[in-house]
Design a protein around this nucleic acid. Structure first.
Lengths: 214, 214
DNA sequence: AATGTTTAGGGGAAAAACACCCTTTTTTTT
DNA sequence: AAAAAAAAGGGTGTTTTTCCCCTAAACATT
């Protein structure tokens, strides 16, 4: 009977313990220890080879050293360790980042227990496990691989900042000394470029990308 | 040996199962079943008295019927059931709302296993368990409560969160199962209440006041 | 000199958003 | 039980936003 070792990394103590308990219930798997953030894991790994497991179950949103950075470190320094991302985030971009960082699986936290076990088995036996969702995402990102860094012109940036205020487009046009129709044009271009549907989408993009700080 | 029954409500399947497993490990406690949202719980409760536990471990952010609404329903219809909130949210406002709705305890998800067990025991024996944090919060809210702060109804908060997405008002109405006209009303009321001119103003308010986190 | 590419802006229509004022029903308070 | 407030939504009209397609300079490139 083969035993694989697992480490759980999650900043929510209760959850890491609960998941650890669940994993310990799987035959073949045993949890070595849990960490509250990436830095703790790095410390453990560098302290002794005994602390290096077969699989790391990794949350993404964590203080100090987050899941993506930690995964990058692991794949760089400990190639044999399989990282499985376990997150609530269902954002394409996040998933891709995590996979790019070297994660061999990405499960959402609303997964069923049985799936987790199956995924763990697949990982130690085949080296990876991907849900249909993730597979689709990978397909999509390979075919339409527009990792094109979006570049903004000065005017577009200025406009975006105004768009985050309560000004109407006409008022923005005044502020920028341009015709309302020109502003119309900037807006249309940005909507397409950023793949958003309306002004709220634009605002959210600006905030997430620190073009505008609330 | 006394056995108390527990129900876990959380929309993240893996977590509810993991926590259920942990609770089953506590002597004295047994998990009856888990639910993915408040509505499921209400359905269970109304179906048979056998489904009514001693304690409900309740997440707050859930689809369909959220933790606060569900807790209100429970305290109204099943006085004997103790609701313990189990959330990642550490916002004073949320905690107070949950307590006001009738929760007898509020634990963060980064609590230690031992604390959870202790809290459960306290609850079934004394009827409540409050951490120091929650106690302080209660003190504060009793004494210095005069910030003329704007108070939102649950529906308004839900609406505000949707308003931060790219959904049109009509689509929001669908999601909330309300007439577009009602949504119209919420919007008008909020615009006045928050003294904003348009949806962008509303979005900014929601972000600044952590009603919505980008 | 011919071609391409930003940059600025126009026209028009359809869809949303916004404002305001009003009714009915239910719930809460007094 | 009466009054007040909250919750849901109807009507109508105006303004803004959104979408799509179209010019014409101003540069830039080969």
């Amino acid at each position: 009977m083969i035993n694989y070792t697992v480490v759980v990394v999650d900043d929510h103590n209760l959850l890491s313990q609960a998941i650890a308990g669940m994993v310990n219930g799987f035959s073949k798997f045993k949890v070595l220890y849990t960490c509250a953030n990436g830095q703790e894991l790095v410390d453990k790994f560098t302290k002794s080879p005994e602390f290096i497991p077969d699989v790391v179950l990794m949350d993404i949103n964590m203080p100090i050293l987050n899941g993506i950075e930690t995964t990058e470190w692991i794949t760089k320094n400990h190639e044999t360790v399989n990282v499985m991302a376990l997150s609530v985030e269902d954002e394409d971009l996040t998933i891709l980042k995590m996979l790019k960082a070297g994660a061999v699986s990405y499960l959402l936290k609303d997964t069923k227990k049985e799936i987790l076990e199956k995924a763990l088995v697949e990982i130690v036996e085949n080296g990876f496990y991907h849900t249909q969702n993730v597979t689709n995402l990978l397909m999509k990102s390979v075919s339409g691989n527009k990792t094109k860094e979006i570049v903004f012109k000065d005017r577009e940036l200025t406009f975006m900042q105004y768009a985050c205020s309560e000004l109407t487009y006409k008022e923005i046009a005044d502020k920028m000394c341009l015709s309302p129709k020109t502003i119309d044009g900037y807006r249309d271009v940005l909507f397409t470029k950023l793949n958003v549907k309306n002004r709220v989408g634009l605002v959210m993009y600006a905030i997430k990308n620190k073009i505008y700080t609330p």
